[in-house]
Nucleic acid binder design. Sequence first.
DNA 1: TTGAAAGCGCTAACAC
DNA 2: GTGTTAGCGCTTTCAA
Lengths: 339, 339
Amino acid sequence: MGKRHISLKDLAEELGVSISTVSRALKNHPDISAELTQKIQQLAHERNYVPNPLAMGLLRQQTKMIGVIVPDIVTHFYASIISGIEEIANQHGYFCIISSSGESFQKEVESVRNLLKARVEGLIVCLSQGTKEFSHFNRLIETEIPLVFFDRVPSGLNVPTVTVDGVSAVKSIVHHFYENGCRRIAYISGPEHLSITQNRNRGFREGVAECGLPFEEDLLVSCNMSPGNANAAAKKLLAQPKLPDAIFGINDTVAFAAMKEIKRQGLKIPEDIALVGFTDEFHSTVVDPPLTSVTHPTFEIGKVAAGLFFKLIEKGGSFSENIVLQTELVVRESSKKKR
Amino acid sequence: MGKRHISLKDLAEELGVSISTVSRALKNHPDISAELTQKIQQLAHERNYVPNPLAMGLLRQQTKMIGVIVPDIVTHFYASIISGIEEIANQHGYFCIISSSGESFQKEVESVRNLLKARVEGLIVCLSQGTKEFSHFNRLIETEIPLVFFDRVPSGLNVPTVTVDGVSAVKSIVHHFYENGCRRIAYISGPEHLSITQNRNRGFREGVAECGLPFEEDLLVSCNMSPGNANAAAKKLLAQPKLPDAIFGINDTVAFAAMKEIKRQGLKIPEDIALVGFTDEFHSTVVDPPLTSVTHPTFEIGKVAAGLFFKLIEKGGSFSENIVLQTELVVRESSKKKR
DNA sequence: TTGAAAGCGCTAACAC
DNA sequence: GTGTTAGCGCTTTCAA
């Protein structure tokens, strides 16, 4: 099978010089004569020499690896954020190891352990839906291993985070509904313990208040964000004696499920019920009618999170910064009552 | 910032024994006395000792890393395959480094180089759309570094591959159309040089022949699989004097684009035109009408590819196997002309 | 039953 | 200018 990679030693032997000479020549050390340097670099190139990162890592105690934990990798939202992270990581000569928690607390804990075993230099994570307690990050925090959270972030932990301004985003949705003549605005929310849910709920209440509408308990239902569960929530809303004239789904999965149920019941979107989602997929334009939705700056979130990570690497972990990005409301057919 | 990780040496010093004793005790070497072993393991556990993979890797010349190159990570199709790969990889104690070629040949070449630099033990790859030439894999093949391809595989290279039976899949689509009364079956195909395109094209021609229909050049148009380009292709089909009564889109992106155009022109699906896609996204159920589509066993593809990879690792690269998986036609509203 | 030493590939301080 | 050496963390002969 042959030797797969050649080492400094191989080069040194072939040229009859010492290993350190080769090492120096390869980094253009001024001590080495121009000819020798030239000759060595030439051979290294021919032989396709690449320094062994394992050796370097051992020496410098760094793996150039970032662990990334997401609830799930097959969602466009996370996949896109990961792309952003990788872009910045690669620019710094780092690689990412992606680990999916599958929305399970248990798997998240395991991911942390495994990634640490692999000696990643730090972690960038979005909490799983099942995570309500953060002690599995204690070791990182104590030993000041770089740790950045995005989107779903822990409460009460003094760590760098990147989130999106959910309060403003949902407020603008409510105002948008209002401007389109909606007065019974319903909301299918998510699990209470998630930071994103809390923010969006607050945005909803404040938005409704700002529009001078009464807050009606019946118009706020929760679900676990699965399609089936979201469908049940939509059914509940549509079973009310006085129908809502607008529904906001906490994410696109939820909005899609609601759309299906609304249509199934023979109601028209947006005429009977206006519908707006919160982007985690990118198929808003494919459904009928096209779904008005808040756009996450996903790629940006990833880049910013990675940026924070490298600040942490450089500054040695002793800083915290909470970055909040803005979203954009993209209005499509599903919410345009006025013409 | 404190010491992040502790080593055998730390343990040895604390206990006043030698490093090798600790090393042996940790792997239950029979030479070490039961008490000492017990004591050492106890301390190791307390101190959260984890062997340094860098040191192990250097020693054994292995990184336990697999490089995975996909055209793009934000597509459900690839993301799901990656999950499958990671499942098997993790079972073997391996991690994956994902690299996205962005459908660009140039970036694919770079990815190969970077991954090799990082000393992955091998590569699992799906070719980019821009790749028509495979010399960037030569070094891997010559040095017998494990290399597995899936879905879009190179022609003429004797390497293990995992693909899907596109010929049968498309044949069954054509038959399905035929059974639903369609007689002018159109096809929006992809780039000619891709193996998947070739297979699906063959399936289309054979299927049409099997149904006893004439093959009409005008009913086969190609696109580069981007939404815009697919839309143009659909327009071309719909501009024909004699409209097709069925359209097959080579993937879901293409089918979605066609659906939009068909609707825009005021035509009904499936009454006027039946529509079928080939799954790379999972929103077939969200569009209106729900899209009949061929389902890829994506997770399975990933698992099988990883399985092949580990065979290669074990057998030292000297084997090749081409696995073909079957797809499933999931019939939804978009193609049901009969009731 | 345990310890010492070499070596995986590399860098850097220290010779000469 | 170039070579020697120690050491990063670990396993594994070889000694004791």
